[in-house]
Simulated scan of single mutants.
Amino acid sequence: MTDDVILKIANVSKSFGAIRALKGVDFELRKGEIHALAGENGAGKSTLMNVIDGILQPDSGEIILGGEAVRITSPAVAQKLGIGLVHQEIALCPDVSVAENIFMAATNASRSFLMDYDGLRKKAKIVLEELADIDPATLVRDLSISSQQLVEIAKALTLDCRVLILDEPTAALTETEAQVLFAIMRRLADRGISIIYISHRMAEIFDNCDRVSVFRDGQYIVTYKLADIEPGDVVNAMVGRVIDKLYPEKQTAAERSEEIILKVDGLNEARRFHDISFELKKGEILGFAGLIGSG
């Protein structure tokens, strides 16, 4: 990581009617760094990323890329400027192949009258080799959610980015897939590519990022060098107060009840879940965990 600023956001604001999603936000991204963006839901992280990618237009403020003020009017313009965004929500075309999805932007810009499907598959295979064992000829609709997310990442890697934005990229990935992604991020940073990494997971931020910027209620709050702080510092900045206990005390033995309020037994739905059973007891909080698409 160098001290060279590749991307600077200066006093950017964005409103949706009466709702001020961004309020005079400042942000700096250095060349070759992995910079985390942290904040509660609604803090303005994704809105800012959509402004940088040209999906949204700011009401005021400047975007300075490589020392020059730029106006990013669409994602296509962002791609030409070397900015790639991997959304948390899958944005692929389900009825065409993995290879066609990965090189859709290049295909759209091509003036050729014929599609070289074999060439697309060969190029896609090279890109996918470092990410996952996915057949480039497979239709996207036949892939798991985690594989679709990896295709989204592969698509971004083909854009020759100067700035790569990853919005909650591990939400649908297994631990093994996430570790592969982190290794790729570090290799990209070593090549001078700058990465904005949005996540709620403190372990991922502290293990893989150089700095973290915290947003709250549409405002930029602070930027920390991660080597100098603890996870509690980030959490406190996110919520605006000191959190003494991230995990409050649970029910005592005397407070627990065996009274069953809700019981589900052998519940099935044709495509999404099978043989689901659980009990919810009076006064308890029952957690459900699983990857996106697990049901």
Rank of each mutant, 00 (worst) to 15 (best):
residue 264 V to I: 15
residue 90 I to Y: 07
residue 30 R to I: 11
residue 219 Q to A: 15
residue 262 L to F: 10
residue 19 I to R: 04
residue 21 A to T: 02
residue 16 F to L: 07
residue 270 A to Y: 06
residue 266 G to K: 14
residue 196 I to H: 02
residue 220 Y to D: 13
residue 254 A to C: 02
residue 100 E to W: 01
residue 167 D to F: 07
residue 11 N to A: 15
residue 213 S to E: 10
residue 97 S to V: 06
residue 126 I to N: 15
residue 83 I to M: 03
residue 268 N to I: 03
residue 62 E to P: 04
residue 240 G to M: 05
residue 216 R to F: 01
residue 157 L to Y: 01
residue 49 M to D: 03
residue 263 K to E: 15
residue 22 L to A: 06
residue 71 R to Y: 11
residue 242 V to D: 14
residue 34 I to M: 10
residue 152 E to H: 01
residue 20 R to V: 02
residue 100 E to A: 14
residue 238 M to N: 06
residue 70 V to P: 03
residue 161 C to A: 15
residue 208 N to M: 07
residue 50 N to V: 09
residue 112 S to G: 12
residue 122 K to S: 15
residue 6 I to E: 01
residue 209 C to H: 06
residue 276 I to L: 15
residue 243 I to K: 10
residue 111 R to Q: 11
residue 76 A to G: 12
residue 13 S to L: 09
residue 206 F to P: 05
residue 159 L to W: 04
residue 112 S to E: 13
residue 268 N to T: 13
residue 276 I to G: 07
residue 263 K to N: 13
residue 184 I to N: 08
residue 163 V to M: 07
residue 267 L to M: 13
residue 277 S to N: 10
residue 116 D to A: 04
residue 278 F to C: 09
residue 162 R to G: 12
residue 213 S to A: 14
residue 211 R to E: 10
residue 15 S to T: 09
residue 104 M to G: 01
residue 73 T to I: 11
residue 25 V to Y: 00
residue 14 K to E: 06
residue 18 A to H: 13
residue 76 A to K: 15
residue 133 D to W: 12
residue 292 I to C: 04
residue 260 I to K: 14
residue 37 L to F: 08
